[in-house]
Every structure is written in C-alpha cells, then in structure tokens.
Design a protein around this nucleic acid. Structure first.
Lengths: 208, 208
DNA sequence: ACCTGAACACCGTTCAAGT
DNA sequence: ACCTGAACACCGTTCAAGT
C-alpha cells in the first residue's frame, strides 16, 4: 500500500534468467511479504511471480517452504541480536542500558509481529534446517548473558548463574512481547509501560 | 499410533446423518488431531472424513477453519483456567499455592504444545470470533489477579496494582512456557527448574 | 434444518525437458 | 548449473440439489 513498487512486474521481453543473488532476493521478498501481509500470505508461487522467476526455480536454493521460513527466522535473530547489543551499548552498559535492552526487545517484536512469530511460533522445527536459527538465537541470548555478567562484576546484579538469570529475564521480555502481540495490552504504549514495570520488579522483587 | 481407534471408519451402510452433537464431535476431533499430529495436520476434510460426515457438513456449525481454531483456543483457555485454579486452591491459596500455579501453567503448555500455540500463536485474529477466546483468556487471567489480591491481603505481596502485577507474572510463565516449547531448555525437567528459579526471583528480586 | 456430491480456485512439490 | 512448463495430490470453500 505504501510502496510504489509494483506487485507483478510486467515483462514484455521473453522470460530471462534471474542474474544476481536469487536466494537473497527470495529471502527479502519473503520477509517483506510476511511483514506487510502476514505469514499466511506467504506463498512460494507468489514469491516467484513477484521476482519474475518460475515457481520451481526456488527449489534450487531452498529445499522447501520450511527452509525458506527457517531463513526468515535466522534473519530475524540476526536483527534482534544487533538491536539488543546496540541498546545495551549505547545505553551505557549499566542499569540504564539493561532497561533499554528490554524495551528494545519488546519494540522489535511489536514492530515486526509476523516476523517475530516465525522466529518463535514453532514453524521452524528442531528437525530441519533450524540449527542455524537456533545458533543465532543462542547468539542473541549470549548478548543478554554477557550483559548480566558485566553487571555482576559491577555489583549491580546478584551472583546467581548468569545463564539461568538470562533465561529468566528472556522469559519476561518474551512473555511481554507475546502478550503485546496477542493484543492483551490494549493501548499500544501499554507494552512499554509493562516493560518498565517489569524492569523495576526484576530489580526489587515483589516481596513487600 | 498408541490409539486403537481406527482413523477412517469403514462404512458398509450407505452414509447416514450424523445424529448427535456434531459441533462438539468436531471440536474434540480437532483438539485430538492437533495434540497428536500438530496444527498443520488439521484439515477440515480430514475431520469430516474421520467423523463419517461430508466435507461441507462442517460449515453448518463453524463459519470456516478459523472459527474451528477459535473454538479450539477457547477450549484451551477453559482447561487452563481450571488447571490454574486447582493448583492455587489445593496448594493452600498462599505462597505454596502460587508457586504451584506457575508450575501448573508451564506444565499445561508443555503437555499440550500445539494446543497452547493455537491459543497464543496469533492464529485467532482479534477480528473474527476470537472475542469468546479473549474473554476466556481474561477469565484465566482473573484467577491470577484474584490470587494476587488474596496474597496482598495476607501481606505476602507488595501493594502494587494487582492487574499490572498479574500481567508481569503472566509474562514470566508465558515466556518460560514458550522457551520450553521452542526447545530452548534442553532437558525436559529444565522447565520446572526454571519456573522454580523464576518463582524465587519473583519474590526476592535480582538486586544484590 | 441438515446433509450431500460436484466443482472452483489455489497451494506445495515433482519431473522431464530445455539452455 | 540454472531455469522452464506441465502435471499431481491436496487444500478451503461454494453451490445447487436432495431428505
């Protein structure tokens, strides 16, 4: 709608080979389709059509639709990892940066809801090519673990196992993100408010 | 596999009308199919076939596949609400019961992963008949809010807005559940361990 | 009212064939 | 190697017609 790029490029010339990086083009198309029209609107035939390529050409680069979705998930984890580290780093690598990380996490999910669901929606099975996605998920997770360790060294966080602390905190932001995506937090700014509240509770606990 | 019930009932008689509660039968079939073979294996044609009913008969009771999935989600929220209240109530409606609630929540998700994903996977859009599902989600949520209020009255929980506290705690258990479903917590017992840890952190906070 | 078969449009995927 | 059209099996959904 907001894009001026035409959906179906009209070819007056006879169909020619797609010179260039077709796998990358497919991935971009898939990500964009999911972002603007939802995952259920993603069809291999549509991707090929919009790229001016035959339907079966895609199978040269991705084993099947699952593999393409796995690549989409991988791309998402890569972006998420970058966003998290940036928030942590520019936030001063302390209490403030950590809070910024939480906000950045939820904002990423809210800004790319369908993409986020592909990353965590169970579409990517542990069986098929999701190992890469899992590793990248671990990479994003590692940013969180590192941030915790650094805070522990500064005496900002208690000395529990940083991996378990990270799992706990990931659970919180992931949970907030999912609730936001499911519309459980009516006003859109409510998500930020909940993250802020969650950050406070994470620090001081709920005991009176 | 473990069931002895035949997949495709053989009818030697000419097809007869399905006397009985077809909507309920459909819902049960859908829930069972999702539980045992995954959501992607759920097809209206298959449901009809297994029920000994024509494909189009289903449309008399559910507008479309989305509506059937919405009913599945509703059923899930109902079960979850029961499981949560039971854990809270038999746990003594105190600190122990509250911890039991958290464990019960995650166990429900782990025991019915596909069903849980239908409830929270965004399949049920806010647009179509998901209002009932949303209301039931609110019902399950209310159990949590009530538990918090009761603990506040007993001086077990600080006097914050119980609704926001409930959202926060729901985020935690929901996040743990999703991570467990995505296989981020390798050993299966790891989920229980994380919930236990989360329950502790919820009480005392992560500040040193 | 409730159910039926036939038909439509649309998928993912495969395959023999082209350059 | 990379791409193509045709074909196959399988969906969700609609519709005129039966009881």
């Amino acid at each position: 709608m907001l894009r001026s790029r035409p959906r179906k490029p009209v070819r007056k010339q006879p169909r020619r080979y797609h010179h260039g990086d077709l796998p990358r083009a497919m991935l971009q198309e898939a990500v964009q389709t999911i972002q603007t029209h939802g995952t259920e609107a993603l069809t291999l035939r549509g991707v090929g059509e919009r790229l001016g390529v035959s339907r079966t050409a895609l199978y040269r680069h991705f084993a099947d639709k699952q593999a393409l979705l796995a690549a989409v998930a991988t791309e998402g984890f890569r972006s998420l990892r970058v966003a998290l580290f940036e928030a942590w780093d520019t936030g001063g690598r302390g209490r403030e940066g950590f809070d910024a990380m939480g906000i950045a996490y939820v904002r990423f999910a809210v800004a790319h809801p369908a993409h986020y669901r592909v990353m965590f929606g169970g579409v990517v099975r542990p069986a098929d090519g999701s190992q890469e996605a899992g590793d990248l998920g671990t990479d994003a997770f590692q940013v969180l673990v590192d941030a915790i360790v650094e805070q522990q060294q500064r005496g900002l966080v208690r000395g529990d196992d940083p991996r378990q602390l990270a799992l706990y905190i990931w659970s919180v932001v992931h949970g907030v993100a999912m609730l936001a995506l499911d519309g459980m937090l009516p006003p859109p700014t409510q998500a930020d408010a909940l993250v802020k509240f969650a950050n406070e509770r994470l620090r001081t606990g709920i005991a009176p």
